[in-house]
Design a protein around this nucleic acid. Structure first.
Lengths: 334, 334
DNA sequence: CTGAAAGCGCTTACAG
DNA sequence: CTGAAAGCGCTTACAG
């Protein structure tokens, strides 16, 4: 089914059909109605490639996230956000294409560059911290509409549209909760990346602004795997017993910590309290359920969709920056 | 950057450039090399819309899943499978578009029909049980390449390419495990849908083929939510205590059951053993960790990619049917 | 308000 | 092996 066939059946030129279907004011209402009904009966839908070629509009948004977040523990969070964005985009009759990117590939070889050059999508929503300065610069220079979600704190990012999560505040909330509930010997269990350092900063500032004397120590986890957290606690169980509160900077790690403490008969929250970060679905199913810093993924999805749609219709303007504040969700573990 | 500009720089016609980039045997090796290098330097990539219009090939596969599986508890499983397929497709230089479908919308209004008619994708992988006979018929009649993954047992399905999971066998494995570990008073906690009935059938056949006298009872959960399972156990805790083994037909529900039993000081697996279904990531993190029937999502992803690629290149032929067998993963709960 | 024509950037039969 | 031409199915300035 093409526009030409409809034109034939409607007894008009196909230009008119095109205009009618795009609801052009240049077409008589009556003609429009007739054509709309015909198209409907025939189940006609505009050929996306043809329209894409003629107008440049593909009605597809690409959502891109770090390859390594395919490891199940990291994808839980991102997948939920993607699903939410997809639903939002659907309202605008846009489809969602998903792709991965990898810090290690050179700029030219990655999916981001490819999608832009192939003109497969109208805009890009890029999740995560793994994006490199070079990738950002290359993308920015193309003038292609894109939005960074939770980007790393790079200089290049400042000239880009972005949604930032206030990780520092999140860390502050966690620290404050531990202190307010009476914990005085704190452990901050973090990872070696910028995002985590910022969470630690917030945590430290909570400690420092406390009227009470607080001891605290920072320790590093190799990565965000459940198993890593579990093993770490297991290997250090003696020194862990010295603490009465732990801020574990991701929920998956927190669950590893919770399970290991349980296996060592350390009672949570009585002997040691735990505060996590992310608020993945499972935080509430853990026993004890996990007090954690909630990352606002619903809000991210709504705002991301709004911004990207604005970018591809309205155009750029000065860099938009939305900063979202996490909130503390109190459950049993602290 | 277009093919024409490259032609100008290479000093050939743009037909030749097109052929060269598509590695046509009609072009001299030398010319090919020169053009390939030029294209590489210029970062040229074929315009997807133009190629799509000329050839009909979009290098995009659509993955479609039930809308309601957006409820986090159901999406966990599907999201992992989608991620795996996406990775596989990437090897073929295909991109992945995701969309939802809804049993309630009429055939014409859903995303499946729309994607086919807009010619936005080359093929469709359709997950789940919610697809209606009408939708299947409509799709089949278009001749569009599509593959059903874990479809409902409808007559229409038989004429379609599909990957089926042997839920019956899964139920059988669960029942057998409970009986082999000495349980004699069994509860089968299921839901009201075909897929679940088949799991129950398998469970029953394990009971019936047992040499031991086994008592068993079937009960229905309203839906697959964690909370529903938790509340159900809570409300029926007295009668639940009568059983020494429960087959809970999804992991999320199983976790609800585990948590509730724990809250009622019923010891698992000593007083009652639990076997789940799905083997989502969290089955191993639960305490006690969950013995469960593993659905082979890695295998699904690999085979789905293979089949759909075959369908869009080779064409159809007789309906392909792959049946995958789940396996039992033994952990602490039984 | 409507139609004929050019053009979007490719591919591919056809002619050489 | 290479090039000129037609065509994929749309949109949209231009002319009426």
């Amino acid at each position: 089914m093409t526009i030409r066939k409809i034109a034939k059946l409607a007894g008009t030129s196909y230009s008119t059909v095109s205009r009618a279907l795009n609801n052009s004011p240049l077409v008589a209402e009556d003609t429009k109605r007739r054509i709309a009904q015909l198209a409907d009966e025939l189940g006609y839908q505009i050929n996306a490639s043809a329209r894409g070629l003629a107008t440049g509009i593909k009605t597809i948004i690409g959502i891109v996230y770090p390859f390594h977040s395919l490891r199940p523990h990291e994808s839980v969070y991102t997948n939920q956000a993607i699903d939410l964005i997809r639903k939002e985009l659907n309202v605008y009759h846009f489809d969602t294409l998903i792709a991965g990117y990898d810090r290690d590939t050179q700029t030219d070889g990655d999916d981001i560059t490819r999608l832009v050059r192939q003109k497969k999508v109208d805009g890009l929503v890029i999740f995560g911290q793994e994006i490199s300065p070079g990738q950002i610069r290359a993308l920015r220079d193309t003038g292609f509409p894109f939005l960074l979600v939770n980007p790393p704190p790079l200089r290049e990012v400042r000239s880009c549209h972005r949604i930032c999560i206030d990780h520092r505040h999140g860390g502050f909330l966690a620290g404050t909760r531990l202190i307010e509930t009476g914990r005085r010997r704190l452990l901050c269990l973090t990872e070696d990346s910028v995002q985590f350092r910022v969470r630690t900063d917030g945590f430290v500032s909570a400690v420092e602004s406390s009227a009470q004397p607080i001891q605290f120590k920072k320790m590093l986890l190799e990565n965000g795997l459940y198993e890593t957290a579990y093993e770490f606690i297991h290997a250090n169980i003696q020194s862990i017993r010295e603490f009465d509160g732990i801020f574990v900077q991701s929920d998956i790690s927190s669950i590893g910590v919770l399970n290991c403490l349980r296996d060592h008969q350390v009672s949570v929250p009585d002997e040691v309290a735990i505060v996590g970060f992310d608020d993945i679905q499972w935080a509430q199913y853990a026993r004890p359920s996990l007090t954690t810093v909630h990352q606002p993924k619903d809000e991210v999805a709504a705002i991301a969709t709004e911004i990207i749609m604005e970018l591809i219709t309205g155009g750029a303007g000065t860099p938009i920056r939305k900063q979202l504040k996490p909130v503390l969700v109190i459950r049993e573990s602290c």
